[in-house]
């Protein structure tokens, strides 16, 4: 019971980049848990480190599902990390313009590395194995 009969307030919050970046950090963090654990359990427990050979890697990377899995793992882990680096830079760069420039550079680095990684992963085919 609310004796003040306060109307359930409809609060309008202006969306902004910092809010989205904070959420992205949370969501990518949550996504990274199954991705990274899945990767680790498969490679280190199910297959085992001594069984990991080039042939094995090529064979696995030849399937589209694993290609996508690893592209996601790369993009989210790297994005999560870069966002973290961006936060660290914020402690030292107080000029908003400089900070925007640095953020943009980090974004470009993330994009380029992720794209190169994606292209590389997609390019793997069974013929590459020996």
């Amino acid at each position: 019971m609310s004796v003040t009969a306060k109307e359930p307030e409809k609060i309008r919050i202006q969306k902004n980049f910092d809010q989205i970046a904070w959420m992205a950090m949370r969501y990518s963090g949550v996504l990274l848990i199954p991705l990274a654990f899945g990767h680790m359990i498969l490679q280190d427990v199910v297959v085992g480190v001594h069984q990991i050979t080039t042939d094995y890697a090529v064979e696995r990377m030849a399937t589209l599902g694993w290609k996508l899995y690893d592209i996601f793992l790369l993009a989210f882990a790297f994005g999560h990390g870069m966002n973290g680096v961006r936060q660290v830079f914020r402690d030292y760069i107080h000029n908003p313009r400089s900070f925007r420039i640095v953020s943009s550079i980090l974004f470009v680095v993330w994009l380029v590395i992720s794209v190169i990684g994606a292209i590389t992963l997609l390019a793997i085919n069974p013929a590459m194995g020996r």
Partner: peptide, 11 residues
């Protein structure tokens, strides 16, 4: 609350 939350919703 709306005004305060918008003030706090920034870098």
């Amino acid at each position: 609350a709306e005004r305060r939350l918008n003030i706090l919703n920034q870098q």
